[in-house]
Design a protein around this nucleic acid. Sequence first.
RNA 1: CGGGGCGUAGCUUAGCCUGGUAGAGCGCUUGCUUCGGGAGCAAGAGGUCGCGAGUUCGAAUCUCGCCGCCCCGACCA
Length: 588
Amino acid sequence: MKYWSQTFIPTLKESPADAEIASHKLLIRAGLVRKLGGGLYTYMPSGLRVVQKISQLCREEMDREGAIELAMPFVHPVENWSEGPRWPAAREIMYRVDHAGAGKGRSKEPEFVLGPTHEEVITTLVKHEITSYRDLPKNFYQIGTKFRNEIRPRFGLMRAREFIMKDAYSFDATDEGAIESYNKMKRAYTAFFLRCGLKIIAVEADSGVMGGSYSHEFMVLAPVGDNDIVYCDESGYSANRQKATSGIVPRDFNDAAPAGTLEEFATPGTVTIAALAAVPYGVAPDKQFKTLVYMGDGKPFLIVLRGCDDLEEAKLGTLGFQLWRPATPAEIEPVMGAMPGSLGTVKGTIRNPGALAGIFADQAIRLVGNGTTGANKDGFHLRNVNVVRDLQITQWGDFRTVRAGEPDPKSGRPLKIARAIEVGHVFKLGTKYSEKFGAVFTDDQKQSRLMVMGCYGIGISRTLQAVVEQSNDADGIIWPWNVAPWQVLVINLDPTDAAASELCQKLALAAEQAGAEVLIDDRDERPGVKFKDADLIGLPLRLTVGGRGLKEGIFEIKWRTSKDMRKVPIAEAGSVIAQAVREAACRA
RNA sequence: CGGGGCGUAGCUUAGCCUGGUAGAGCGCUUGCUUCGGGAGCAAGAGGUCGCGAGUUCGAAUCUCGCCGCCCCGACCA
């Protein structure tokens, strides 16, 4: 048991000016963290306890799935990165330690970086240490501090420059094995977040150019999150917005037959979807074709969408370009023959089709059937444009942004969209790193083969804040049993009274014997202050001892989640407390 | 990095537009009274007004530069 006066829990009445969201305010008000600088926080004694609780739960679930804990350095020789596969991107987010040997009389200054993640380190290690299929599979993990020079740290621990992360790396002999390792981690993550008391959704994530469904993000639903997720409660479909698709075009959809002959009409000065939808033209956005020009690795390409749809840029990653960006009007005009606002892909209207890297059409334009598009002639559009008959298309795909209410691709039920915080990510890497670093092993046929890898992250410090964000009320934090800094708070309203102090100790002991951790508020404070602080720091179970109750021979028991308080005869203390603790632990 | 906002006591802030004595609440210290949901009274301590230059007889206040922090966007556990 811990006495409040013997630890340090500096609570605050008012929120600091630089905190915006509930969890950030509460972390500071409840004395869990203090800020050193932007994105840099000290874990105060009770905050550290929560970090340790969460880490331990994570450790248990990782161990359960056979992962092996180790600890790698935070400081990496720069060569470890500069010779790796992603130096150009990585150097942007890494803190570099310059002058590391200054004044030491060295001929050459060694240069170091602070590790943002450890694929490079672990792969190098495994390459040296594992050479036989007999030593595979292996999954190594660590829990430690990561450093990323975030472009914009925000919301306290939510996006910090320095944060605590669990990262794991699996190595398998076969692709099937790698998938099994991946599934084990998904299982471990699901169990872990459940034990933290978090409601999470695992969503299919954008796995970039690698494709496939071997990347899942673990999301906490929260209005302050910086991700959009698309999901359907009935079918269980869920994906992040970059990846999400919808069943807006039915599987058995029959393309419309041409209606009328293709016809050019004058639209002077009309260069937006909205203007074409207004009088005198009156062409509804979902009857228009939107033609966007992008530059992919230096060559222009076209994206065709419905006028009412938005492009989801991340989906262009499936097209095989390394880099892409919107084209400028100066790049567009020579190729198309018109400026943006009058563009289209009707056969024969593009001035220089040979310059294009492709014309990519979103599936949903089939719903337009016969519509209106630019004539590639400034001030003119074409009507009665039939998708099948008139449009020039080199490849179909899914490029549009999904909207709430559209049919789920699985069940057809309406999709929902919600904001969420990403707290975990599992990723099947394949052989990208093993190839680069030469992580090979000898199989049972004496053949040299590449290890198949996966990587798996959990933001421990972010999880802490996500719990607070998801579990609080107007009075303060409501800790889930398993991650509370202590589970039971014993309030001594008369700390100068020997009988009260003695009873508090007795109650605390009973709770401890039942398996709970106990904090005793023995401060010489007024009752109001103690009750307010109790709600603020949010321990799940509260036991109150006061002179008034002592006379009646009772103490009080109250759950943080409930308004109801129960008076318990002191004689029944042991059994009542034991039962309460057992029930809470069981529910958790 | 683009856009917006802010920097005054440990915390929350007023004052700034219109230059002249730095003010409040919380917290802290001492005393008295209180004592079951952030007590009352009295007395106190606590400030390079983010930093630097400039304008001025005089700058928290006006001008310029820098730094820091917060929010929105692109990126991420």
